[in-house]
Design a protein around this nucleic acid. Structure first.
Lengths: 335, 335
DNA sequence: AACAAGAATGACATCGATGTCATTCACGGT
DNA sequence: ACCGTGAATGACATCGATGTCATTCTTGTT
């Protein structure tokens, strides 16, 4: 293993017979150096195999080129659209993202945030609007643009790009009732303290109440272990509750699991029972029948959030935005 | 927007009436400070809302706590298992990962690598063993542990955790032939210059040749636009080639798309024609019939790679490893 | 020829932590 | 009372780049 000391600006400066600052300017493309000088310097830099040290640059210039992204999880594909579009949009502007996983827990979120903040990111994109007091303080004390996404509130930390989970679930339920469904049970994934699932459940409940209906049960998958295994649990639940005509899932993956397992068990979807999801991941449209679900604009939220960060950092605006990207209902085969 | 200058070690040192270095040691938990002093310092740090500046720390200590991870894509779920297990395994040891996307192109990979290297990561995990000359040079010049994954070679840059794509495709094809299939066509995703798909195709071809069979055609999806849309293209191909008895896909997602679209079009899988995939993503087991495929140990590779990095950085070993994690064949419903 | 104005370059301090070596201090043994 | 020893603390230089202000060098103008 070769252990030569890495090449620095100083080495290039010496080789070129100029000062380090001139090298710095030449390599950064600043318009203050003669084309000749620049050419000579870039040649030498290339020959020596120079690799700029972004750490040093970050320290001095107070710009790291990093954007912190905090999501409940990146495993499933639910948030991965969002993360991808953030990454693509910010990548264009030369930013790199660092991801933290809150695991659907605001304490964990705080821990993750505390670690990320030490790297002095130039901006933060964070899922949800419900954070610990300390997290909120941290976020504002950082003095960088912050965009909360995937939820809605009157009182964001800074900017916000999201939609109302409660409202979406409420409207969706009303429409299902109009279609003739009336004996609902609700199924949720791990009950998060970040409480988006909670809000969806509440919206659903309010719609039932508004229509004078009662709920026919509820089930929670405490530990998500994959779609098929959740589906098994839900199949058992459905068999124990044969009076149901619609299983309202607050989580897309368990809706898919339920649909697959019910079909395999011979339950006819949607004739024997309807199943609806919330989220619209790609897998929802490949199963049989394809899942009827709330389509959330994950990629759009990511892109908008990234743009806000980008514009703020480019100094184009000081404005704080609140953007509601809404949702769509994808009527497919399960309801 | 409050714009107080951030709190540094110096501020704490002044407040506590000690030197900065003592503060540094106290906060890092080094065993050189009196419990009293430490207590006092941590209290003050907490009161002032001190957030350590990892950038400065990285510059001085030459340790960034970052591990660069370079993958062809992070969008699909194919590599996301790997990335997750890397992130989890390294997270335990206090490392943070920064991801780069090569988009299945070694030139792009080099570009991404050049950007990542500037952040002086403490280690690199990179998919594939085929890189540009410059990329290889960069990797070795960095002087940090490098683990290549998802492929196999005699001559890795440093360590390697993977499996032989060619060999897997070869064996899989032989087994399919033994099962009675004999009129194969091969379907691939975007033909990568990173050439894992290429190797799979070659392994498949060699098996045919070994058995004295010819190929009945091949099709490439030039731009992957989702499973269902790829599936449409493949459905058309299948209809144009009714003599086929097995569609050998070098890419999991297009295999899923093909299966779904063929079934929806009334083609009986596997009776009319078999379809096999390569990769085993979760979606493969929820479709009907579930996909017969090569099961690649993505999570295991990630974990092993992360461990190698971790051990090397902990100074436990200097050893370079080559690890073949192999593969399994998951016989499900499509062949 | 003198000078203004701008282009090109440089000197120096600085970002915030930490590695290294030096110093102070307390305490126990003889 | 003296000294050695180790524990606790501090002074100083340093990581590698860049912001700021100063200086030199052109070039054109009157």
């Amino acid at each position: 293993m070769a252990s030569k000391p890495p090449v620095s600006l100083k080495d290039i400066a010496e080789a070129a017979g100029v000062s380090t600052i001139t090298v710095s300017r030449a390599l950064r493309g600043l318009p203050l150096v003669t084309p000749d000088t620049r050419k000579q310097i870039t040649d030498i830099a290339h020959r020596l195999g120079y690799v700029p040290n972004q750490v040093a640059s970050s320290l001095r210039s107070r710009k790291t080129g990093l954007i912190a992204v905090v999501m409940p999880t990146v495993a499933g594909s639910i948030f991965s659209d969002t993360v991808n579009s953030i990454s693509n949009e910010l990548g264009k502007a030369g930013y790199q993202i660092i991801i933290g996983e809150s695991s659907y827990d605001i304490e964990q979120e705080q821990t993750v945030l505390e670690a990320l903040v030490q790297r002095r990111p130039d901006g933060v994109i964070i899922a949800g609007v419900n954070h610990t007091r300390t997290s909120r303080e941290l976020l504002s004390a950082m003095n960088v643009p912050v965009v909360e996404i995937w939820d809605m509130t009157e009182d964001p930390v800074d900017s916000l790009v999201g939609f109302s989970n409660r409202h979406a679930a409420y409207e969706f339920t009303l429409t299902l009732i109009d279609k003739g469904y009336g004996r609902f049970a609700i199924a949720s994934g791990p009950m998060e303290r970040l409480n988006r699932a909670q809000q969806r459940a509440e919206g659903h409940g309010e719609a039932l109440k508004f229509k004078g209906l009662r709920s026919f049960g509820s089930i929670v998958i405490p530990h998500f272990m994959g779609m098929l295994s959740s589906g098994e649990t839900l199949l058992k639940f459905v068999r124990d509750n044969p009076e149901l005509d619609c299983l309202f899932c607050t989580n897309e993956l368990i809706a898919i699991g339920a649909t697959v397992q019910c079909r395999r068990a011979g339950i006819k979807i949607p004739d024997d029972m309807a199943i609806v999801g919330f989220g619209d991941v790609e897998a929802a449209s490949i199963i049989d029948p394809p899942l009827t679900t709330i389509c959330i604009h994950g990629a759009a939220m990511g892109q908008e959030a990234a743009r806000i960060i980008r514009d703020r950092l480019a100094g184009n605006t000081e404005e704080r935005k609140i953007l509601d990207v809404g949702y769509d209902i994808a009527w497919r085969g399960t309801a």
